[in-house]
């Protein structure tokens, strides 16, 4: 099992639900191939540094996962065939130091998710308190 990180950019013209469905689609490919998804980092809608396929913005998502090498071929084939994905990049972490950093990055990404979840929870609690 190797450590990989894949970044992909979804077209900005889609609605939020469609973007979410695209992301789950990519995740499904990984789970189907038997990869272990470690963390997901949502970078959100960003301005692109240069236009890509006449798009000026894009929705960035980063997936950290552990998988066998053959999975990448299948994943990239799916990404390439998907017309709603305008950019993708896969990076492999091989050296020991790099893998240590990979764990750190993945943990940071996880923490980001949990933090936003916590904020939402706190907001919910506050709302409930107000209602009561």
């Amino acid at each position: 099992m190797n450590c990989y990180e894949t970044l992909f950019v979804v077209k900005p013209t889609l609605t939020e639900e469609e973007i979410a469905s695209q992301i789950t689609k990519v995740k499904d490919v990984l789970t189907k191939e038997g990869a272990e998804l470690v963390a997901t980092q949502d970078m959100g809608m960003r301005k692109l540094a240069y236009p890509v396929e006449k798009n000026n913005r894009g929705y960035y998502t980063v997936l950290y996962f552990k998988a066998a090498g053959a999975v990448i071929q299948e994943l990239e084939r799916n990404l390439r065939n998907n017309e709603d994905i305008i950019k993708f990049l896969t990076v492999k972490y091989t050296k020991q130091r790099e893998v240590a950093q990979f764990d750190k990055l993945a943990a940071a990404a996880n923490r980001g998710v949990s933090q936003s979840a916590k904020v939402e929870e706190a907001a919910k609690v506050q709302e409930e308190a107000k209602e009561a």
């Binding site: 970044l7 540094a49 890509v52 950019k87």
Partner: peptide, 26 residues
């Protein structure tokens, strides 16, 4: 070079699309 590939930073800043402060762009 990886950041350039993923459109996080531009390859070039030319005269055709002049931005006042390119560092604020990203």
């Amino acid at each position: 070079k990886r950041a350039r590939q993923t459109a996080l930073i531009p390859y070039i800043v030319d005269r055709k699309n002049v931005v006042e402060s390119p560092l604020d762009m990203i």
